[in-house]
Amino acid sequence: MANINWRTINIDALDPESSYNFDLSTLTPAVQPVSTADVQTLTGQIRQLLRGGDASGALQGALENAPYGADEQGKAAHLSVVTECLNQIRQAEMTPLLQRMYKAEGGSELCDTLMKYLYKGMSQGTDTPTRNHAGAKSMTPQATGGFSQAGGRNFGGTEGGGQAMSVFLSWHEKLVEMVGPGSIVRVMSDRRTV
């Protein structure tokens, strides 16, 4: 008894009124749960569009159907298909494409979603190691109610990482030009993570 370090006791856990004992997910906007199989069907369709040469259509489709309710695996699958779309679109086409997207109905929402994928992509390093350390990343930040974008940054960037990063960075630059810092703040504050 005498050895208890009182300072390390989590007093919040003992307080029934504390937010520690409260499921914070009930406060967030409701998202429809999406099964991994559904995400796979969707990514299949998007890849088909991509093979057909319609990269901008594929990107639009991918962003419109972002699986907020999917598990970590489903989200990773969707991220990789978004990354493929982004890689396929040439630098010169970025701005006109973004402009078209932003002007359209609900466009600012799409741009915010794209921003989320850019940050998620940048936090993951390259596309290939993503799959390798998908297991290591299974300590889902979701469970702590935190922001998954902030967690799990891969600092040990591998050789191929620079290429992928430069794609994300040039998209990021073009996107910020259009939607301003507001979109970045929304990525940080949004509870619907990608």
Partner: peptide
């Protein structure tokens, strides 16, 4: 009331008549 991203609310205000409510949140909205 919740805004689409559930960003934390910085300020709230009633309209002069009190028949409408406005709030600004950390998602720049």
């Amino acid at each position: 009331y919740l805004n689409p991203t559930a960003g934390w609310v910085h300020d709230v205000a009633f309209s002069p008549s009190g028949d409408a409510l406005a709030f600004c949140a950390h998602d720049s909205s």
